[in-house]
Amino acid sequence: MPTPNRIHVMSESDVRRAVARMSREVVERNGGTEDLVLMGIHRRGTHVAAMIRDEIEQSEGVQIDSGSIDITLYRDDLEVVGPRPIVGGSELPTGGIDDKCVVIVDDVAFTGRTTRAALNELGDWGRPKRILLCVLVDRGGRELPIHPDITGRDVQVLEGQRVEVLVPELDGRLGVELIQTETEDA
């Protein structure tokens, strides 16, 4: 539901074009589709990963191995926020991740802590040949030395704003919006 507090950033076709370009970049960076594994970060990252997978499978005509990561158990803020209901476990791709080119896919890059947790979890699962980070939106604000390799769009986010990626499976539509969280500034 669009409200006055929501600012439109990317429309459905913007997202689809970005995904198409990111998919090409993924294949290019890997030098093809061999040993390519897509790992979406729970929850919206898995939807972005599925879009990229569909796109690559269509354009290249091959099956891409994929999985998902729920980083809940690798967070560094259990003491602060307390335990949260675990929504879904992680799913290892059928072929494993050893010696693969693993592409971590997330919806938004922000502090880098989620990526840090995902890297740790992948390290517990095996030893990929290479790991790439691919995000639909980079909003800046990193707290760790982590940088995405493939980005859909850089978005500047002011104080009191939050960026939200909307996916049809969870939100009923596709797009990217900025949300004004402090109403007095709106």
């Binding site: 158990l73 967070r75 095996g126």
Partner: peptide, 15 residues
């Protein structure tokens, strides 16, 4: 989800 951790090669999470 904790069932799956015991099936991993490295049966450990840092929680």
């Amino acid at each position: 989800p904790f069932k799956e951790i015991s099936e991993r090669r490295i049966k450990k999470v840092p929680v």
